[in-house]
């Protein structure tokens, strides 16, 4: 049996060559008319006000941290799902194969619940922006 990853590598090469090909075709076709003002970034027709290399409130920092945890969890679940059915068919008892995973997921669910209660899985409202809002009775 030949190595499938070589075949995938071949597709990767094609996948890069096709866009590169389009770029070179375009390079041959397209005009180049440099003008002052054309290259300014678009900001609704106004003169651009500064660039984006600024400190900015991204509001999903906690969510991003949680993502790392849960993403690893899914990685751990992969092998379990693969062997699950064949293990059952080969006579491993349900308790033996299901229970550990249930415990694992249970712990994660508890973790999610905890994060949920602490408000980590929601978009953090900016206190500054919220203070701009007139307090409603």
């Amino acid at each position: 049996m030949s190595n499938p990853w070589i075949a995938i590598g071949a597709l990767a090469l094609v996948g890069i060559l096709i866009p590169l090909g389009m770029m070179s075709v375009s390079k041959l076709l397209r005009p180049r008319v440099p003008e002052q003002g054309k290259t300014s970034t678009y900001e609704s027709g106004e003169i651009p006000t500064g660039d984006t290399r600024i400190r900015f409130n991204i509001q999903y920092y906690m969510v991003a941290l949680l993502f790392v945890v849960f993403d690893i969890e899914t990685v751990l679940i992969f092998p379990w799902t693969v062997i699950y059915r064949s293990a059952l068919e080969n006579g491993v008892s349900l308790m033996e194969i299901l229970a550990p995973m249930l415990v694992f997921i249970g712990v994660l669910v508890v973790g999610l619940g905890w994060a949920w209660r602490n408000g980590a899985v929601k978009w953090v409202r900016s206190p500054r922006a919220a203070s701009e809002r007139r307090t409603k009775q």
Binding site: P31, R32, K38, T39, S40, T41, Y42
Partner: peptide, 11 residues
Amino acid sequence: LLSKELIVPDE
């Protein structure tokens, strides 16, 4: 689309 000018913004 391929024959449009490519405008690369500043910076």
